[in-house]
Amino acid sequence: MNSVSWVEKIGGSALSGWRELHQLLGFASAVFRRLLSPSSYRPLTVEIAVTQIYFTAVQLLGFFIVVSVVFGSLFIGMTLFVIKEIGLTGYIGDFIAGVVVLEMAPIMTTLLIALRSGSAINAEMAVMKANRELDALEAFGVDIANYLFLPRIVAVMVSVVLLSALFAIIVTASGLVFSAIIFDMGFNTYTEIIAKAIEYRYFAIMVIKSAAFGFFITFIPLYYGSRAGYQLTAVPVAVLRGMVNVFIAIIIIEVLSLVARFL
């Protein structure tokens, strides 16, 4: 009897998880369709998006550049040293293009923005729900998806794409300094090696990947924030659930991008 109820619990949890995932993806799909529709973009939407870009990217810019320079330089320096030690100097370009531009830049940027803006958006939505602001907006016939979701998602997507590119450029540039120190390599040689290793599709991959990261690290906090309870105690629970699912989404997108790249 006990074992049956235990199995029932597992089955119930699986079904509930599946229903939640289905609902989340269905809602994400609806929001994505709105994203592609030009009629969704009204002056107010654009204005909110601009404000969100300011809070997400511009305010973060100084700290972001410092992190990129420090972390990127250390990473590039150590890696180039190891490359020299194991005699794979011929693959510097492939390494910088393949690892830094395609993998490290988007994921580092995404993590920084998810920690800073994703959690803030999640808490903002949960508080709005607890204060019944969302109910009030719905009562007045305001389209919440267009007014709250869309501008934030667009803003974070634009921010992640731009900051990822900036991160890749800064780290690649710091690689120039280290390649000059470790390999006695000049600017022309270094840029030629990097340029030869970068394929044009890398730009598209990086933009799509960063945009996907940006979409989900905003949509998931918005989704879980808007589904929070009406009590203030529900706010941290909603933030926690939202951020855990953001982390899972980042891993899934990273894995899918790797699979797509090497297939």
């Binding site: 300011y54 511009v58 810019l61 731009l162």
Partner: peptide, 15 residues
């Protein structure tokens, strides 16, 4: 808006 515009334009130009 100016700061955001400047950020977007300069970053896009750099890219």
């Amino acid at each position: 808006q100016y700061k955001v515009g400047l950020f977007i334009v300069s970053t896009v130009a750099l890219i």
